[in-house]
Each structure stands twice: as structure tokens, then as C-alpha cells.
Design a protein around this nucleic acid. Sequence first.
DNA 1: GGCGTTCCGTGACAAAAGTTACAGGAGTCT
DNA 2: AGACTCCTGTAACTTTTGTCACGGAACGCC
Lengths: 211, 211
Amino acid sequence: MTLTTSYLQEIFTGLFELPLLDEIARVGIHKRVSAGTYMIRPGEFIRSVPILVRGSIKIMRPDNQGREALLYYLGGLDSCAMSLTCCMGGRKSEITALVEENTELIAIPVDKVDEWMCRYSSWKQFVFLTYQKRFNDLLQTLDEVVFHKLDERLLTYLRKKTDSCQCTVLSITHEEIAHELATSREVISRLLKQLEKAGQVKLMRNKITIL
Amino acid sequence: MTLTTSYLQEIFTGLFELPLLDEIARVGIHKRVSAGTYMIRPGEFIRSVPILVRGSIKIMRPDNQGREALLYYLGGLDSCAMSLTCCMGGRKSEITALVEENTELIAIPVDKVDEWMCRYSSWKQFVFLTYQKRFNDLLQTLDEVVFHKLDERLLTYLRKKTDSCQCTVLSITHEEIAHELATSREVISRLLKQLEKAGQVKLMRNKITIL
DNA sequence: GGCGTTCCGTGACAAAAGTTACAGGAGTCT
DNA sequence: AGACTCCTGTAACTTTTGTCACGGAACGCC
């Protein structure tokens, strides 16, 4: 799909200056990616930095035994710090990025990411803001794991999920939750049952309603 | 203490170009900080970005109950990503930085950090490398907490410590370790005793020898 | 309807981690 | 030596988390 400056103006109101929007329109690649697609896996190289226009992407960290912990989500107008470091440093990815909801994004080629840093101060700001956000995301995730018990972690997990999808009913299985919190299905089932008894959630097959 | 370009050349051999070294010599502030000093605490603002020449600094993340988990260490020629984001974004610190060994550092004023980004490509590289390193540090820490049990975490903790101080005998109490791993002293004592029985370490008052 | 698959509930048990309580050793100071 | 503080060891117990085993419900597909 071709990008027009006026379309970009709508999306990035006030964020980027006009000449930069022109450049983005010229070299950016407009993509739609459907849920379930892997954007990147550990060991792969990244050739462009994505800016999300719509949808959400899940960033996960695998270990060497098939487990995979959830790090954070990318949402509207977010970009990815890992892709930045990988691009700028020419290094392999250390994480997995899985498209969670159908996503629309603009891919910026590596060399432009670097070039624009000095040419457009709004771009530089954007890049640093991205680092800042992801760093904080990581710290929050760490807080959860280090300082909180599983039942609390489960609750904040559910809350974040409902926040990002803007709804109170989640379509998810216990198995999936267990995977993202790096624990077992039985444990999650047990804790969810506790939460249900405490009146915090309502459980159905493949669905969880947060009250 | 005044900085000379020739001194900086010794330290940063091949890392920065000559004109940049000149600038660093002019505006950088050479400091010695002794062990035990707090460089920064949560809620404070940062007015300069430090580059470590010698020594080490411990970066910790507090929760709201007096606990404080170890994130990672800064060592030789490292800089701090948190200080970068804080400076570039004008935000408060979210972490604690405690000088672990007597440290020698060069403090770069905020405005120069930004200015040099475009003027010196070696500086830009340095900044991005710093982000990259800290990001990876954080990911590794997260790996430990999410995927490993306490006894393993304790071992890697001890190993990292010995690596950074270049010695096999650590001067540390069980209490301190417990604090950094966000658990209780009794648990650490118990696990250390296990490790001693397994022939991995040798315990003395205020000292732990890694075998 | 019957069949297979996926998902959920749960009991029973094991392992890991946290808590409480207390004893005693090592060091310091006077 | 006596008093004191700080550090370590350890037993006993609770809570939390992980694992195994199984049964049954919900759903889709002939």
C-alpha cells in the first residue's frame, strides 16, 4: 500500500514535522500483519524498525527449554526498542515478537532510522522515547516477577490484557496464561478458581470475564 | 581534577575521535566517588551522564516496601542507560545507584550528551551501545528471576560478583545477599549451607570463598 | 448420535520458599 | 572479664508453587 503525507499527518498529528512525514511517505512501507504472525524470532536479523499504527504485538523472552515469558506489549504508535538496538548494532534478536491483534504498521528501513536521528529532532526524540518506554516496561515486568506472588501477577496480567484490548471479556485459555507467566496450567486454573470464588472474575470455556 | 586530552586518549583508546576527546576534556568533570556513596536515588533528577573509568556501581530497583532488587552492575567504560533516558527525557530516576567499589568517572553535562549525538558518530555509537548493553543486562536478570530457582540464582549471583571484583573471596554477609535477591536471610543461609555441603563454596564470617 | 480433541477442575502429594523462634559464636568496646 | 552488637546455624512450621493422575465437560466433525 502506498503512503501519503496526508494520511501520515492524520496518524502522527503533532508528533513529526512535515518534511519528515514526506520522507516517511517515500521510504516507509505500509504493512498489514494478521494475528498469529511471528514478526521476529530469536537469532534472526531485523532489517527495518516498525512503527505500529493499529493493533498490538506481544514481545516474549524464551529460555532454552521451550518456555517463553511475556515481556510486554507494543500498542498504538509504539515502536520497538529491541529492533532499534538490533538495527543500530547489527545484532541478532534475543526475543520473539508475535502479532496479537491484526496490526497495521509502517516499516522504516535501517539506514533511514540512523540518518534521520540527526536531521529531524522529532525523530531523535521519538527514538529516545521508545527506549524510555521499553525500559520502563521491562522494569515493571521485573517488579512483578521479583516482588509479587503468582496470584497478584495473574491479576495484573489480566488487567493489562483488558486494558490493551479495551474489553472485559478475554478470549484465552488457562494454558496460554500459564505459558506467558512461565508456570503450569494447573497452577493457573487453581488461582483463577480462587479469584472466581473471591468474585474477581468469571470463568467460562476459553473466556474470562474480569469484574 | 582537570582532564587532559592525553589522559583521555589513554583511557578511550580507539573509542572516541580526537576532537571529541578535546571536548570531553573541556566540559567533562573528573570525579572520584568512594564506595558506599549513593549516586542517585528514585525520584531524583540527573544532571549529567557518567562514564566509568574505574570501579563499579550497583544498580538496584526498589519496591514500595523497603525491598530492593539488584538489576546489574556498571563497570569499566560503561555508562548508564537510565541516566541517558532521564537526561534526554527530563524524567526522574526510577532506580538506585550505589557505588560498590571506589569509582573514578567522567561526568558529561546533559546538553553535551545531546549535542554530540549528531556531531560525533563515535558518540552516537557509544550511546546506542550503552542502551544495548543495559537492555541485555536487564533481560538476563529477568531470565534468572523468571526461569531459575533460588539456588541457581544464588550461584550466578556469586559468580557475577567474583567476576566483577576479580577475586574468589567475597566480603559480604548473608543478609546483604538476601536483600539483593529480594528474599530473607534464613533462606540464603540455608542455600549457602547446601552449596557448602556440595563443595561449591566455603563459608566464613563476613566472607564467602567460591571454589 | 458416537468419536476424538481440547479445555478445565481437582485431589493428593512433593518441592521450594517464607516465617518464627531461638541459640551460640565472633568481634568490639570498656 | 563482661556487656554488647552483629552474624550465622538450624529446627519447626506455614505458605506457595510445581507435578502427577485422572475424570469429566464442551466442542467440532463425521
